[in-house]
Each structure stands twice: as C-alpha cells, then as structure tokens.
Design a protein around this nucleic acid. Structure first.
Length: 435
RNA sequence: GGAGGAAUGGCAGAGCGGUUGAAUGCACUAGUCUUGAAAACUAGCAUGGGUGCAAGCCCAUCCAGGGUUCGAAUCCCUGUUCCUCCGCCA
C-alpha cells in the first residue's frame, strides 16, 4: 500500500509505475473515490459534532424534550451518511490494494522474467565427463525421493524424502540457520498457518483464482506460502523504538503453494512442489537502513551458495516480475545441470526490499526521534535456503560418474561427516561401486 | 471440547449511562533548587484522520466488530486473546 497523498500528488509517476509492472490499477478512479469519501466523511463529522453538542447540553438544559428530539433527528441523518461512508470506504480500500509499490532506481524494464538482468556470476556451470542425470533420476536411483508415494497420500507434486535426502534436508536447515544466526539474525520457528488478514497485510491474496495459497475451510486462515507471512505479521500494529531497529529474523517454516497451472518441463520434480521447507530472512528497519540490510541479505544468500560451491548468477528483477510489494529485488539462480536440455540457471533465492508497502498494511511503525512522529518501518525478506530447490542444485551439481552424489564439504559436519550418498541395493545395503 | 473470570494510556490501576480522552501512582521529558547527583517542587507527556500559515478547532479510538440510547469505557450480542478448573491429547 502506498500513501494516498503521495498517489494524488504524483499521479503520473504512479500510473507509469503501474504500466511498467504490467498490472491493472485504476489510479484516477482511486483518486476520485478518495475525494468522494473525504467529503462524505467531512459531512459525517459535522453531524457527529452536532450530535455530540446536543448530548452534552441535555443534562443542564431546561427544555430537555426539544433537545432529545433534535438529537434523534441528527441521528437519522448520521445513519444515512455513514452508510455512504462505509460503501465508499470499502471501494477505496479495494482500489488501494491494487496499487503496487514504487520502483527502485535502475529497475530493469520488462514484463517477463526474461527481462531480468544478470549482474554477477559465481563459478562456471558444472561440466561433466559423463552424461549427467537430472535430480529425478538421481532421486530414484539413490532412493531419495518418492513422488509416487507423495501422490498417493496428498496428490501430485507432493513427495516423500527418504534416506540420506532427509538427513541432507535437515543438514541444510542447520547450515543455513547457523549462517543467519552468525550474521545477527534471531532464529525463529513459525506457525505454518496464519489468519487471512495477515496474508493480506503481507501482500498475499488469501482467496480467489489468482491465489497461490491454500485456504482452510470454515476458518479465516490459510497455510502460509512462506515464513515471510508469519514473521511479517508477528509485529503488526506495533511501534518500535529506533534502538530496536533493525530487527532481523531467520525463520524456518514449511511453505505451501497451490501453483495452479504451473506444470510442464520447466517445473519438473522437486523444482516446483506444493510443500517445502525454507529458512527465510526477514528484517524490520528504519527507512535509511533498508538499502544496507537488503545488501546484507543478498550477501548472506551468496555466502551460503558460495560455501556450498554451487555455480550461480545474481539477477536484478525487472519491473513486471517484481510482485506488488517489492520495490527492489534480487534473485540468486543456481546452475541446475538437469534443468532444460543442457542445464539452466534456476531460481533458488530472492531478496526483496518492500519499503513501506507491507508495514502500511500491517501497521508496523517506529518512533522517529527527528520528526517526533511514528513512521512506518521498512520490511525486507530473503531466502536463506529453500530446501527443495537447494536439493535439486546439490544433487545435480555434485553427482559423480558412478551414480553417487558427493555431499558438499560445508554440510558434511551436519551429516556426521558423511562424504557421499551411495546407491543402495534392493535389500537396503550400499551397492558396490561400479568400476 | 465443557464451566467460569478477565481485557482501560509505556507499566500499574480507578472509573456512577451524562462537560471522562479518561482519576491516581510509577516511568519518561523539560525546568527550579544543588559544586554535581539524589530528593523535593513545577510543567509536559496516547494514536489516527480532517481543517488551518499558525495557535488552535473538529471527528474517531478505553481488545475487535455490531447493537440499545439524545448520550456508552460503563448496558446487550458476536468474535479474539489471556487466566483458572474439567476433559482430550503429541
């Protein structure tokens, strides 16, 4: 959400932003509704003032009956106007929700993800002396991932992790969490459910065709699509002191996404699933801190993938691919040898600066000493590690000619020093290496 | 899931249907006093919106949303959260 006064004073800029993002938002309609709402409110307040005055005068008045009658008359008028105000207010709020955040300077133009701009590379794409498998094949051959079982229990795009994949998953959680804690982030395990009002505040649509979240029947709640939702809501309607900021969290949660219609070759296997675990970085900052914290979040993300020694590129996200809350966003795309025909980069993290967009909706402020007023904080979020996609990257990049998968050195300590995942024979014993 | 109780300013804690946005204490801020500090004293101290150059004025807010009334922190209904007890349970 943006400030209505800013929108009115900078209508052209806001409209250009809407166009650049390729979203639908009727700015002039919004302004018209706001003006109508304002004048209706002023009328209402005038009547309320009258009503208050009459009520105040009654105890000391001689002719109480006349005043009571007058009060009743005013009350009737108030009822009419307040209905109008309610209707206009609903329209106003609905329209406000369609206005996306502003764009940071230097945001690439473009509506689709092919307009995102790579700005940095780490390592060269992995080369193999043999024909590499994709993670699905590796997952089956090494008995690590069971999609059929997942489908039987919960449906397509659900899965069981098995054997060393389980230990690898947990090791990655610990590895990423330790990194974040070392960087000063407070560890957090969050609820996997949240009230729909929180989803809306963070910028997710809890219901409707475009919604990517699972709503609970009969309850005003949804499964969270990311810990960003839970942590964003954690401090809603609170006012921080300047000393408390920046406030930084590393939150683990499960993430549930409907991903309706997102099938196809580009999202096979673990790459796009309905449920995965994720350690999310989230920060509440003063406005003048958010840029530095944004860089810090990206640096932590890069550090994690650098220590895992997985080739990646950092991309700056273009206007159309940003998402409504984000003002500026970077993704890390890891090299995935099994993606596409000959390997492709695939998104494994993102880091967004949402400036005031979420804090306005959630009501998160801080007491600003300089102005003496309560101002909105900035919120930022980024992925420390999304376990399913990290798993894809590790399996595919670390595979060996003999079908085994080396465990990245950085996480060996979290797997009891284990160095590789070997194929199991049918009876569960490690198979002999094929020479 | 069942039965009770509670929710008021940063905290504690009053509050009768009628000048109560809200007593009082603590905390906090500024000032007086003091060599300095403490103590004491004096003053200030909620949020959001509207309007105005400004001082100010107006509206809303005592968990949230409805209702009764000329008038609600106070009465009624619903929801939320917390506490106590019972049941169930990893």
């Amino acid at each position: 959400m943006q400030d209505i006064h800013y929108i009115i004073e900078n209508q052209a800029t806001v409209e250009a932003n809407v166009t650049a993002r390729g979203v639908k938002s009727d700015i002039s309609g919004l302004i018209a509704v706001y003006e109508k709402l304002k004048s209706a409110k002023q009328e209402l307040e005038g009547l309320q003032a009258q009503s208050n005055k009459i009520a105040k005068d009654i105890p000391t008045a001689d002719d109480k009956a006349t005043l009571v009658a007058e009060g009743k008359a005013v009350k009737e008028k108030i009822k009419d106007i307040s209905d109008t105000v309610t209707t206009l207010d609903e329209q106003y709020k609905e329209l406000m929700l369609t206005v996306p955040n502003g764009l940071a300077e230097g945001t690439p133009e473009g509506l689709e993800d092919d307009s995102n701009v790579p700005i940095k590379h780490f390592m060269e794409p992995t080369k193999f002396e043999f024909t590499p498998k994709d993670h699905l094949e590796l997952g089956t051959d090494l008995d690590l991932i069971d999609f059929e079982g997942g489908a039987k229990v919960a449906g397509n795009k659900f899965y069981f992790l098995k054997n060393d994949a389980v230990l690898l998953d947990m090791a990655l959680q610990q590895f990423a969490m330790n990194k974040a804690v070392a960087a000063g982030y407070t560890p957090l395990l969050t609820p996997d459910l949240a009230r729909n009002s929180i989803l809306e505040g963070v910028g997710f649509a809890p219901r409707g065709d475009e919604s990517n979240t699972y709503a609970l029947e009969d309850q005003d709640m949804s499964l969270i699509a990311t810990a960003e939702i839970a942590v964003g809501g954690l401090h809603s309607k609170e006012v921080f002191t300047e000393e408390q900021l920046p406030l930084r969290y590393a939150a683990f949660s499960h993430c549930f996404r409907r991903e309706a219609g997102a099938g196809g070759q580009s999202s096979k296997g673990l790459y796009r699933v309905h449920q995965f675990g994720k350690v999310e970085l989230f920060a509440f900052t003063k406005p003048d801190q958010s840029e530095a914290v944004h860089d810090e979040i990206l640096a932590i993300e890069e550090d994690i993938y650098q220590e895992l020694k997985i080739p990646y590129q950092v991309v700056r996200i273009c206007a159309g691919d940003l998402g409504a809350p984000a003002y500026k966003k970077y993704d890390i795309e890891a090299w995935m040898p099994g993606k596409g025909e000959e390997g492709e980069y695939g998104e494994v993290t993102s880091a967004s600066n949402c400036t005031e967009f979420q804090s306005r909706r959630l009501g998160v402020k801080y007491a600003d000493k300089a102005s003496g007023r309560n101002e909105f904080v900035h919120t930022l979020n980024g992925t420390a590690i999304a376990l399913s996609r990290a798993m894809v990257a590790i399996l595919e990049n670390y595979q060996n000619a003999d079908g085994s998968v080396t465990i990245p050195e950085a996480i060996q300590p979290f797997m009891s020093g284990k160095k590789a995942i070997q194929a199991l024979s049918a009876d569960g014993v490690v198979a002999k290496k094929s020479a």
